[in-house]
């Protein structure tokens, strides 16, 4: 019953059975769709269980924004380094971060990826090049530039990539970081996920009408591109081009993708009743679900079944894990040697 979409996406969708590779050998569309499903179901599982009161930290869900994380990370190798924001679950999982360790971190357990010290907003899995996510707007942008500086100085082929939202482009450090990356020609890709809102403040009260963030970035002297962030193929292709540009020594790259967060800014619920955005706007964006035609495709049924098992297992692992010992906290904080 799922109708194939028109254009590139539709054509590629028809090849799903063949697991066709898009343009390069990086990752098949089928694989990317599986990754998006994984993020969606993990996030839904957190939303479902959040009210149990066992995941006791601010949690920002990525539902609706899966395609950017997956399309971007599908072009990255393990050695390429990624940094992210408060809304990091999708980026962490798309880069290949360990699911059990992420869920355990949200439960505040010692088996978590940050041993329970960080919570949902401070995820890390260095074994796959996910170098961290932090809670302050714009705050990992310069860190990614610094990582690119280090990679370049040490003659590594890898690149650095940082995700941030539209709100971060209003911070001084955004301009400072782009500026330095450009003058030093550093291998870094800036990925702006424009979901129109900074918490409950719309773009119209934060940025001049008609401004395009990618055009503003381009005017600073960086190669910048823009696309539909809910279309994983489009994201994939734009990222592929950006990465290719870096390998051709065209300097740092900037990508802006339009997308929309479905749930509340922080927490498991829908919040269209608050009045800061219209239900109709939400419904319009839900029509553009990056997982449209995928969720109900029989192609993914067995994958979804095994995914659900994995997710249940991850929650069980987290629930059965211990909280960190106080001594361990003292050691990690450096108070006790």
């Amino acid at each position: 019953m799922a109708k194939l979409r028109k254009g590139v996406f539709g054509r590629l969708n028809s090849f799903i059975n063949n697991h066709i590779i898009i343009k390069s050998k990086n990752m098949s569309l089928f694989e990317m769709q599986k990754r998006m499903l994984k993020i969606r179901f993990v996030e839904e599982s957190i939303a479902e269980r959040y009210s149990e009161g066992k995941m006791r930290c601010p949690t920002h869900l990525s539902i609706g924004q899966e395609a950017i994380a997956v399309g971007v990370c599908a072009n990255l190798n393990k050695d390429d380094l990624v940094l992210s924001t408060h809304r990091a679950h999708a980026h962490y999982l798309a880069k290949g971060g360990d699911l059990k360790k992420m869920i355990a971190e949200i439960y505040g357990k010692v088996t978590g990826c940050s041993k329970g010290m960080g919570g949902s907003m401070h995820l890390i899995d260095k074994s796959v090049g996910f170098m961290g996510s932090t809670a302050i707007v714009g705050n990992t942008i310069p860190v990614a530039v610094g990582m690119a500086k280090g990679l370049k100085l040490r003659n590594k082929d890898a690149i650095s990539c940082v995700f941030f939202g539209d709100g971060a482009t209003e911070e001084g450090v955004f301009f400072e970081s782009l500026n330095f990356a450009i003058i030093q020609n550093l291998p870094v890709i800036f990925v702006c996920e424009n979901n129109l809102y900074s918490v409950y403040s719309g773009l119209e009260v934060r940025q001049p009408k008609g401004r395009k963030i990618y055009e503003m970035a381009r005017s600073m002297g960086i190669e910048a591109n823009h696309g539909n962030g809910n279309d994983v193929v489009e994201v994939y292709e734009k990222m592929l081009k950006a990465k290719d540009n870096i390998s051709k020594d065209k300097g740092p790259q900037f990508l802006e993708f339009d997308t929309y967060r479905w749930r509340e800014h922080c927490g498991p619920n829908y919040d269209n009743d608050l009045g800061y955005r219209d239900e109709s706007e939400f419904l319009k964006w839900r029509e553009k679900d990056p997982l449209k035609n995928v969720l109900d495709s029989s192609e993914f049924k067995s994958y979804i079944d095994s995914l659900k098992d994995d997710i249940c297992e991850a929650h069980l692992f987290a629930e059965n894990s211990k909280y960190p010992e106080y001594e361990e906290f003292l050691e990690i904080s450096g108070i006790k040697k």
Binding site: P142, V145, R154, V173
Partner: peptide, 20 residues
């Protein structure tokens, strides 16, 4: 460096994460 104290501190931090 540019007169970008906050970014340059972050850039220093990032470079130290990868071994500098």
């Amino acid at each position: 460096m540019p007169t970008s104290e906050n970014a340059m501190t972050g850039i220093g931090i990032g470079s130290s994460i990868v071994g500098l």
